[in-house]
Nucleic acid binder design. Structure first.
Lengths: 158, 158
DNA sequence: CACCTAAGTAGTAATATTCTTATTCAGGAG
DNA sequence: CTCCTGAATAAGAATATTACTACTTAGGTG
């Protein structure tokens, strides 16, 4: 999503355009690594130019942008949340347990699940859902070592 | 799952039977509230009889029991993880955003998703997946207030 | 353009979870 | 039954995230 569209979406939902929000968005636009960003990474990137931005502000705005579906929040099972620009339409993810890269899939279980049946049988009002697939991506299939383990190894070297 | 079966599963996977593990399991067997338990709740319950058990031990063993599929870990979107005894077979959950009760559903998106197609198209090796449905259960459909908000309200009263 | 107010921010404290390290213990081998 | 070793534990530190509070500011109104 383009920067202007995001600003429009903020405005239309009653959110203000602050320099902090613009910087956070820019961090995502500048990220071309393919790996979703963590709150701490975004915070560090912005600190270089704006030494006063607080980590709390980063977290708060990541949640705002996630609620507005500008970003999607991913759990790569490494103990922290990571975020990436949302493609806009409803989707789910293939997440690599080794390198952390995430790929979008259009398949949604709700297209094949009879929502009405669940609503009737269980008398349950569906509001939202989550669906993520974890495994090894193209480049990482060789290794049997998982992301969590690799991170631990990396830490022990420092 | 019965207590003896859990102990067998621990033993067969090289885990030891410790008093702490037995107490944690008992906390789940004793829980008939229908609401999954948080780590802190389990810790408090055990502290009455065993004042020395550490919260870390509770967390560590919840993860062990989750890995062995004795328990399932649920995210009720209220900022903490909750756990309940697993029915044994593969399943997913309907989670109520208001009261926190969780109901098991047998539907699994992978039965209708062509795994081979994803594996081929994306060259992705699938290891595991998550699928949860959030909404309002039978008893909570009236209210439009969400769990998170109710928890905040409750806190402000204290 | 100055004013006003709800929304946003920084800083700090609180909470949830995991890690580290030294000590203890379960349970197999002798 | 005793010894031994890897696994488990307690205690406390570290990390990830959210909440609280007083101050600041975006952006609408006159």
């Amino acid at each position: 999503m383009k920067e202007d569209l995001v600003m429009d979406r903020l405005r239309k939902n009653g959110y203000k355009i602050t320099p902090q929000r613009q910087e956070i968005l820019k961090a995502f636009i500048d990220n071309n690594s393919g790996v979703p960003l963590s709150a701490e990474e975004i915070h560090q990137a912005i600190l270089e130019k704006h030494p006063n931005i607080s980590l709390d502000t980063v977290y708060r705005n990541l949640n705002v942008l996630n609620d507005l579906e500008v970003l999607c929040k991913l759990n790569l099972q490494d103990g922290k949340s990571r975020y990436q620009l949302s493609p806009g339409n409803h989707h789910h993810h293939l997440v690599c347990l080794r390198c952390g890269k995430s790929d979008v899939i259009d398949f949604c279980p709700f297209k094949s699940l009879d929502q009405q049946k669940i609503a009737d049988e269980k008398n349950f009002e569906i509001k939202r859902h989550s669906f993520e697939i974890f495994g090894y991506c193209d480049g990482c299939r060789d290794s049997s070592v998982e992301h969590r383990q690799l991170i631990q190894d990396a830490k022990s070297v420092l």
